[in-house]
Simulated scan of single mutants.
Amino acid sequence: MSRVVLASNNPGKLKEFSLSLTAAGIEMVPQGELGVSEAEEPFDTFVENALAKARHASRITGLPALADDSGLCVSALGGAPGVHSARYAVATDGSRSDAANNAHLIAEMAGHTDTRAAYVAVLVYLRSALDPRPIVVEGSWAGEVLSAPRGHNGFGYDPLFYLPDLGMTAAELPLEQKTMLSHRARALRALLQALRGESFNSKS
């Protein structure tokens, strides 16, 4: 089984990615276990930030790397919060929270009638830090932004992300259903399809 460093220490991401990629012969190892610090994410696009994180992890470990960058893009806000989704409402002391981000989004949407939005996830797989042709895939999940939160499952903007076809927010969906429909799940399926036929060089 090939070892691949996950350019994240998020246990939720590790679990989700591992469940999908083990079947493809890939063992995911979080970067923290290999002494890799978090990379800077200075860019304005998901793909550039994901590439930066994957290169950072692969360069330090010498292993293939997988990184993702994701967020909520709201039409009426010109794509914001976008790559700044996790830190949309940073407090003066530097702290951040989902509740604060959601409150800030509700305030920013006041007066807007266009409520269309999409969760977006971009995954980047690098065979090495100098890989000239990384695998880049994207998954998106279309919905709308509500003016008040609903539901207690999920995280991030899930309580405000309404799915008209289902009549529920992402925070009201059962976890099993969300993990099949989400932007990250769609990106993972695209990655698995792209990885078919790949040969991996494992390193220990």
Rank of each mutant, 00 (worst) to 15 (best):
R96I: 09
D44K: 00
R96F: 09
I26V: 08
T92L: 08
A76L: 05
L72V: 10
Q177Y: 01
H104F: 00
M28N: 04
T92I: 03
A52W: 00
D68V: 12
S95N: 11
L63I: 10
H112I: 14
S8N: 06
F43S: 12
L195I: 11
F17C: 11
A76S: 14
L163I: 15
N101M: 06
F46K: 11
N101D: 03
A185E: 10
R150D: 02
D93P: 04
V36P: 06
G82R: 07
G197C: 07
E27H: 08
I135C: 08
A185V: 11
M28V: 12
R184A: 02
D98W: 00
V74I: 04
L72W: 03
A50R: 08
V4Q: 05
Q193P: 00
Q177V: 10
F155T: 06
E138P: 03
G154L: 06
P64G: 14
G12Q: 04
R150M: 11
E108K: 15
S147R: 12
E48R: 13
G78V: 01
A80R: 15
A110C: 13
G78W: 01
A171F: 06
A121Q: 06
V5P: 01
P149L: 11
P159C: 09
S204I: 12
A67L: 05
L188E: 10
E172P: 08
H56N: 13
Y157C: 11
Y157L: 13
Y162E: 11
D165R: 06
P159G: 10
P174S: 13
Y125T: 05
G71Y: 02
G154Q: 09
G197H: 07
V122G: 02
K13W: 06
G167A: 01
D93Y: 04
G25Y: 04
A187L: 09
D44R: 00
D158C: 05
S147D: 09
E198A: 10
R96M: 08
T92A: 12
K53F: 12
T61F: 05
E176P: 00
K13S: 11
D114N: 14
L19P: 01
L188A: 01
A117K: 05
L51G: 05
A67W: 07
A80P: 13
G71N: 06
L51C: 08
L105Y: 05
S140Y: 00
G143K: 03
L21W: 05
A170H: 03
A91G: 02
R196Q: 14
Q177R: 11
L77Q: 09
P132M: 12
V36M: 13
A80Q: 14
V36A: 14
K203W: 07
E176A: 15
F200L: 14
L192R: 15
G156A: 15
R96T: 11
E27G: 00
R3S: 13
P134G: 04
F17H: 06
Y162Q: 10
V122H: 05
T92V: 10
A23W: 00
D114Q: 10
S97C: 08
S85L: 09
R189N: 15
D69E: 12
L14M: 03
T45S: 14
N101F: 02
D131C: 12
V4M: 07
V122A: 09
F17A: 13
R59K: 14
P64K: 11
S182R: 14
L77I: 14
A99D: 15
A39E: 09
L63R: 09
R3P: 00
H183Y: 04
